[in-house]
Amino acid sequence: MAGTGSMVLGSLAAGAVLIPLALLLRRRLGWVTGWAIAGLLWSVVVIALVTLLPTDASIGVVPAESRLPECSMDYGGPAPDGFWILSGGQRALNTLLFVPAGAFLVLAVSRWRAGLVLAPVGLLGLAGYSLLIERTQFELARIDRACDITDVVDNVTGAVIGFAIGLVLVLVLRPWRHRSAQ
C-alpha cells in the first residue's frame, strides 16, 4: 500500500470509523468535546498515513545501504522542494499537517480543569510523535523517506500554531458549557 491515493483512502476510512465515535462521545461530553476527541484521533492517523506511507507505489524496496547513515541534523536538510498537496513545498505541508492536531487537542481537553495540564502535556506528546515518525522513517529505509530535524521543527511549529488556534476556539465555543444530552 503506497502512493497518495492510499493516503487519501486511508484518511477517508479513518474518518468513517471515527464519525460514530464522535457521535457517541457527543452524547456524553457535548458536541465540541466529542468531535474534538474524534478529530484529534483522525488527525493523528492522517499524520501517520502521510508521513509513513511511501509517496509512490512503484518505489519497491529501497536498500538500507542507499539510505542516509543518520538523521539529517542540517536545518533545511534533504526535504524536497514540493509535494503533491502544496506547491509551496514539503516544509509547508509538514507545518500544516500538525495544525489540526494542535487545535483538536486543546478543544478535546478544555472541558475539564485538568485540561490546564493535559493540553501542554499533549503538545509535548505531539512533539514526541513527530520524533517517533522521524525515527521510524530512518529505521524503515524501504519507505523511501528521509529522517530530518527540519521536519520535527516544522511539525512542532504546526502543532503550536494549532494549539494557539485551539485556545481561541475554546474561548468562542466554551466546551465546558455544553451539557450532555441525556
Rank of each mutant, 00 (worst) to 15 (best):
G88L: 14
S6H: 09
T55I: 13
L9P: 02
V32H: 00
Q137G: 02
V99C: 15
A57G: 14
G88F: 12
S180C: 05
N155V: 10
T55G: 08
F83S: 05
A119T: 13
I133P: 09
V50A: 15
E139I: 08
C71E: 04
A16H: 00
D148W: 11
W176I: 12
R145F: 13
S72L: 02
T55P: 05
V99S: 14
I19F: 08
N155D: 11
S6K: 12
A14D: 07
G162I: 08
P80T: 00
A48H: 05
G162H: 03
M1H: 09
R145Q: 10
R135A: 11
R142V: 15
G88I: 12
T95R: 02
T150R: 04
G76M: 03
R179S: 13
R174K: 14
V45N: 07
V17K: 03
G60T: 05
Y129N: 10
V172Q: 09
Q182F: 14
L24Y: 14
T136N: 04
S11M: 00
A108T: 10
L118N: 09
A101M: 10
V99W: 15
E65M: 11
A38H: 01
L86D: 02
A38I: 06
W84P: 11
I133S: 07
L96M: 15
Y129S: 10
F163T: 14
V46Y: 05
A48G: 13
G5V: 02
L171R: 14
T136H: 10
A114Y: 12
T33G: 08
A36Q: 04
I85A: 04
L124M: 14
H178L: 11
L124Y: 11
L52H: 00
I47P: 11
A2T: 15
I19V: 15
I161H: 08
T33I: 02
P54A: 12
A48W: 02
A146Q: 15
G39E: 05
S43M: 05
Y75N: 09
A103S: 13
V8E: 09
E65A: 15
V106T: 07
S43K: 07
S72V: 03
G88A: 15
W112V: 03
M7V: 09
I37H: 12
V160G: 00
I47V: 13
I37Y: 12
P100H: 13
R28L: 11
V109N: 12
V50E: 07
A103W: 06
D148I: 05
L49V: 08
P120A: 13
